[in-house]
Amino acid sequence: MMQLFAADDGLMLAYDDQGAGTPLLCLAGLTRNMDDFEPVLDHFADSARVIRLDMRGRGRSGHDPDFMNYNLIREGRDALALLDHLGLERAAILGTSRGGLIAMVLAMGHRDRLLGVCLNDIGPLVDPRGLAYIMGYLGKRPGLADFDAAAERLETTMQDRFPGVSRATWREHARRVWDEAPDGLALRYDPRLRNAVSEASATDALPDLWPMFDALAGLPVALIRGANSDILSAETAAEMRRRRPDMIFAEVADRGHVPFLDEPESLAAIRAFLKAVA
Rank of each mutant, 00 (worst) to 15 (best):
M2V: 15
L4R: 14
F5N: 02
A6G: 02
A7N: 11
D8V: 00
A14I: 01
A14Q: 07
L24H: 04
L27D: 04
L30R: 10
D36H: 10
D36N: 14
V40N: 03
F44E: 03
D46M: 03
A48D: 08
R58K: 11
P65G: 09
P65I: 05
M68G: 05
N69H: 15
A81S: 15
H85Y: 06
H85N: 13
H85K: 12
G87V: 09
A91P: 08
S97E: 07
R98C: 02
A103R: 05
A103D: 07
M104T: 09
V105Y: 11
A107K: 06
L114R: 00
G116A: 05
G116H: 05
V117L: 06
C118V: 12
L119A: 10
N120L: 11
V126E: 00
R129F: 01
L131K: 08
Y133D: 12
G136E: 01
G143S: 08
G143A: 09
D148P: 00
A151Q: 04
A151W: 02
E155N: 09
T156Q: 15
M158H: 13
R167D: 08
T169P: 00
W170I: 07
R176C: 14
D179S: 15
P182D: 13
G184H: 06
R188D: 00
R188S: 02
L193V: 12
L193I: 14
V197I: 15
T203I: 12
P211H: 07
L216H: 00
A222L: 10
L223P: 02
I224A: 05
R225F: 03
E235L: 12
R241W: 07
R242I: 06
R244C: 12
P245R: 07
A250H: 00
A250P: 00
D254R: 13
R255A: 15
P259H: 09
F260R: 12
F260N: 03
E265N: 06
F273I: 08
A276R: 14
